Computed example of a mutant assay.
Amino acid sequence: MTIRFALLGAGRIGKVHARAVGSNPDAKLVAVADAFEKAASDLASAYGAEVRSIEAIEKAKDIDAVIICTPTDTHADLIERFAKAGKAIFCEKPIDLDFKRVEKCLAVVEKAGATLMVGFNRRFDPHFAAVRKAIDDGAIG
């Protein structure tokens, strides 16, 4: 089964995620949205996707999941919006800078029964893992 993605945000990290989707035979980048039309169209054309508005992506039947790579202050609102729309969501960190706002957002996700993953890639970084091990072993900290 191919998972059909929309990418929100065509900047640096958006390009990284577009490449990841494009390199997976079980995934397809269907649409790209960005406030900068040229950034959206350049990235979309590189992966055979369309440029669409966030509104169009929200209503689209041909999109299963969204990847949120927009500025931090938009994350919580977009997560809530796409959770209510029935899309699976991957969001770059953080969800929001305010803990209460994060709690509210997660309550919406839970109520909608949506799938949400937040990208904290550093937990898999070998250097971070080594520091964690050193703390756990009592060598530092």
Results as ranks from 00 to 15, higher is better:
residue 116 L to Q: 05
residue 83 A to M: 02
residue 25 P to I: 01
residue 123 R to G: 07
residue 41 S to T: 13
residue 6 A to G: 14
residue 122 R to H: 13
residue 132 R to C: 04
residue 26 D to Y: 11
residue 15 K to E: 14
residue 40 A to N: 06
residue 88 A to K: 14
residue 137 D to N: 06
residue 15 K to W: 12
residue 112 A to T: 01
residue 13 I to N: 08
residue 59 K to D: 03
residue 64 D to E: 11
residue 31 A to C: 09
residue 125 D to K: 08
residue 89 I to G: 02
residue 8 L to T: 15
residue 42 D to Y: 02
residue 28 K to H: 09
residue 134 A to S: 04
residue 113 G to N: 04
residue 99 F to P: 04
residue 33 A to W: 08
residue 71 P to I: 00
residue 5 F to A: 12
residue 72 T to G: 15
residue 131 V to E: 12
residue 95 I to V: 10
residue 20 A to N: 11
residue 49 A to H: 04
residue 7 L to S: 05
residue 108 V to Q: 00
residue 51 V to P: 08
residue 111 K to Y: 03
residue 119 G to N: 15
residue 100 K to W: 02
residue 40 A to F: 06
residue 36 F to Y: 15
residue 18 A to E: 09
residue 107 A to D: 13
residue 133 K to H: 08
residue 65 A to C: 07
residue 40 A to L: 06
residue 132 R to P: 02
residue 58 E to T: 15
residue 103 E to N: 10
residue 57 I to F: 02
residue 59 K to P: 04
residue 34 D to C: 13
residue 120 F to S: 00
residue 132 R to I: 15
residue 124 F to Q: 11
residue 43 L to D: 04
residue 54 I to D: 12
residue 25 P to S: 10
residue 44 A to F: 00
residue 89 I to V: 03
residue 68 I to S: 06
residue 107 A to C: 09
residue 132 R to T: 14
residue 6 A to Y: 03
residue 6 A to R: 08
residue 32 V to N: 08
residue 1 M to N: 11
residue 93 K to G: 00
residue 36 F to R: 15
residue 66 V to N: 07
residue 53 S to V: 10
residue 126 P to D: 05
residue 2 T to L: 01
residue 122 R to F: 14
residue 116 L to S: 07
residue 111 K to N: 09
residue 47 Y to D: 11
